[in-house]
Design a binder for these strands. Structure first.
Lengths: 246, 246
DNA sequence: CGCGATTTGTGCACGCCTTCACAAGCGCCT
DNA sequence: AGGCGCTTGTGAAGGCGTGCACAAATCGCG
């Protein structure tokens, strides 16, 4: 068993598998596969076929096979994929075995909810610190953590290496917070504030804008309404089950 | 001025511009353009160049021009785009002039925050009803709305046409809630619960999974770490500012 | 009235992603 | 041992999206 396929770069340091240049689209789907696999494992399944896993993850089976083939050959022809093995592999690829530290900036309406979101801890992330600029919020205890002032961010980052920063502030403060995070050495940011962040090229930013999601749905709603109103108004089938991802 | 270009289908009912088959990628960017345009309008700008708007929206200027060209010719060569006109056009395309009714199911940690999210109302959406299955939550008042029991959803949908349903329940209840929404005639769903929803083909589902976003960031963090650790460890520049969208 | 500066709109080529279809491989049953 | 059915892994084709580079169009100025 051990490591069958090591990756591309031969001059590899240690046992870290070099990255076989996974397509972005594949990476965006791996977490969904992982969730489906965990669910399958709970039901006691030892192996899954690509068909079965694809159905559980909501994708085409061919796509799933191609995605998994990029990580190496972890399936057995005629049988399927070993669930436990695949879970380990994907978690390793995603770096989830590192139990990454996350800090959250902005303990307002949304930030408050995010701080208590159970889905983070259960999937390999530790929320280690909460920050806000409002002195009235500082000191408040949420889910076992005390809100600290944003000026303390540097100090906290110094003791504990922060892998990911989450921005849940009003739009006007987002850029300033991003600058602070970058200055503290954070190189991955999840931004819930509307607007574009300007960051150095080595920093990755993912943006989630709830209003944008609604607007996209509104468009489809608008389109469907105008189609069914037209003479040839059929069932207006089109793209559905659009998953968010880059 | 008025209408220069009406769309494709000539046999058009009323003044509704038939849909020129916008690419999905373009649709996903229109809301971001719209936000940038609103911001520009507030600063008093009458016109914008594609370069300027592209910068404000965080995209390539060529991409922006191509996107806008799909909606028709609303720019003037040598001058730029009329901000107010473009706002109207995009809002119309997205169907935001309809002031769509949104209902939210699941008033837990996240749902509570969503119910109070100001970004919805300010961008053309009205949260008209909150639902939950927990009797203890029913009756609670949030942001001027009273939480009702999920069984009342059909009745509410009968009086007020609900355009979009938002699911913010635990994963286990999501499918059941989706079924109720579909039965009530809702054809657009925004799902915050992990997992795949099964819906009829005429229903659009968009999914937002916060943990997935973190996992994707984790991957890039993992990748960057292993790159900088290698001999040729340069600044590890790669894809950044990845916006979420289908 | 003509010219140059500016900016839009778009044809074209390239690359990524998806999907199909099938050969190769594996296990089981006889 | 041999054959059969099932499933993976992948070559190839097609479609979609992006970005370049440029022609067409408009405005302002001399």
């Amino acid at each position: 068993m051990s490591q069958q396929r090591q990756g591309s770069t031969p001059g590899d340091a240690g046992g870290v598998p070099a990255f076989p240049d996974l397509p972005e689209a594949t990476i965006a789907r791996l977490p969904e596969y992982l969730r489906a696999l965990h669910h399958l494992a709970e039901t006691g399944a030892e192996t899954v076929s690509s068909e079965g896993l694809a159905a559980a993850a909501g994708v085409n089976s061919a796509k799933l096979r191609k995605d998994l083939s990029h990580l190496g050959s972890y399936g057995t022809r005629g049988v399927g994929y070993d669930v436990a093995l695949l879970v380990d592999q994907i978690e390793h690829i995603l770096g989830l075995d590192k139990n990454r530290a996350v800090c959250l900036v902005g303990v307002g309406n949304l930030g408050h909810a995010l701080a208590g979101y159970a889905g983070f801890a259960s999937r390999g992330f530790r929320v280690v610190a909460l920050f806000d600029a409002d002195p009235n919020k500082v000191g408040e205890r949420i889910n076992g953590l005390t809100v600290r002032h944003i000026d303390d961010l540097n100090a906290v980052a110094a003791e504990e290496s922060i892998a990911i920063g989450v921005i849940a502030t009003p739009p006007g403060s987002a850029q300033a917070v991003a600058d602070v995070l970058v200055a503290a050495g954070v190189t991955s940011i999840l931004n819930f504030a509307p607007g574009v962040l300007s960051v150095p090229p080595n920093v990755d930013v993912r943006k989630v804008d709830l209003a944008i999601e609604l607007q996209i749905l509104s468009f489809h709603e608008h389109r469907k309404a105008s189609l069914t109103a037209l003479p040839g108004g059929r069932s207006a089938a089109a793209g559905n089950q659009e998953a968010v991802g880059s």
